[in-house]
Each structure stands twice: as C-alpha cells, then as structure tokens.
C-alpha cells in the first residue's frame, strides 16, 4: 500500500486530472482506493494520462516516482 500512497501523494500535488490505466481498467490517479484496487505489482505496465494545466509536469513527476524511487525502497 505504501507505493500507492506515495503515488497519490505526488498526484495530488497537481491540479490536472490524472488517469492510470492497466489493461482494460482506468482509474483516478488521485484516489488511493482506486489505485490500490488496480493491484499493480512490480513490473506491471501502467499507462498514466494527465489532462490540465500542469499535466506535463505531473506525468514527469509520477514517471520518476514509479521508475526510480519506488523500486528502490
């Protein structure tokens, strides 16, 4: 649950809408309930979409979190 927590903490810093997709399921990237239900274990492919003013920044931050920080914990 800790990775999900860090994910939503980062996502919630931005004002844009963030959608995370895994297979056919798309969920709200700011909701810990939905993110944790997505049941992403290590090595799963996630697609992150952001829409809004700070979208680019958000995607960059989340990408860095997932690819670099979370895997080193």
């Amino acid at each position: 649950m800790r990775p999900a927590m860090h994910f939503v903490d980062v996502a919630n810093k931005f004002s844009c809408e963030i959608t995370v997709t895994h297979g056919d399921n798309s969920v709200d990237g700011k909701s810990i309930m939905q993110i944790s239900m997505l049941a992403a274990t290590q090595g799963t492919k996630l697609c992150i979409k952001a829409q809004g003013a700070d979208a680019d920044e958000a995607v960059r931050a989340l990408r860095e979190l997932i690819e670099v920080k979370l895997f080193h914990e």
Binding site: A4, V8, S31, I32, Q34
Partner: peptide
C-alpha cells in the same frame, strides 16, 4: 496510519 489517512481523505471512496 498514513495509508489509512489517505483512504479517509480519498474523495472517491
């Protein structure tokens, strides 16, 4: 507790 707190603040929940 931090995780539970995130759930409590989760608007979609």
């Amino acid at each position: 507790f931090a995780v539970h707190l995130r759930f409590m603040r989760d608007r979609s929940l």
